[in-house]
Amino acid sequence: MPGEPKRLEHPRSVYIIGFIFKIITLSVLIAVIYQITFSPHGPAVLVPIKEKIEESQKSAILEEVRQQEEYEKHRHFHHVVEYPQLPENMRPVCYICHSDYPHSKNKKVRAMLNMHTQFFVCETCHIQEQPGISVTYKWYNPLNETPKGPFYGTEYDPETGNLIEVEDQFSKISPFYRTGDKFKSAIQIQDSALAQDYVKVRDKLTPEQRDNVKKKFHVHIKAKGHECKVCHSRNGILDFRNLGFSANRTIDLEQLNIKGMVTKYESFYIPNLFSE
């Protein structure tokens, strides 16, 4: 108004109140815009457009995989627990083609063999012995050069009798080449030069060329892994005590009755014994 003194230098509280009101107004505005466009509780005017875009980007495979995961959750009934996963580039190179469930041929033992992927990398079982090179087995964690443990599966909880829960979810028993006092990891991760190069060019290779390269990854790998007793016995290749397994756990692993069940399957399973 003319004649009135100019309003100068408001107290600081005015700015704070103004700021709060602006934030409230802005959030109301955003909420109303969301309500009118995408919210299932409002007129959803933009939802048809969103659906059209999603439809054009749909992948039948992706859809099916997601559906199956959902289905598996219900089929399983017992809780499906999500465990932390290693970042893609830190995983062993085998993961480019194989998953955590690589065994599928032998119906009797495939689930049991897959179970072992929690405890060690593929090479622990599938490494090709080379003359003159000694292999030692140690805990290996791609995120930690000297994992200290405690590692999963090495100890029982005295109270419950269950295996103790551990923080370290990534350590696995893995082979190392030994020269004197030095240990060199016998496995490759996806960050290795060969693996990175392969991932970069694999789409450009013909199927034959791809097979050739895959052979390169399998130079020191044998198709059939160790027999159970190679580890599950008194003088097996894995020194359970040195690897940090407790005394009673070591005894259980060395005298594992499950091993007897699998290798002596034929004699154990007398046909028709349990049929009615």
Partner: peptide
Amino acid sequence: MCHKYRQIGRIDEKGRKRSYFVNENI
């Protein structure tokens, strides 16, 4: 004895992941 390990499972013939894991503490 077998089912307490989280990786016990397989990919079945139809390509579906089947987990046979039962978390003993849960």
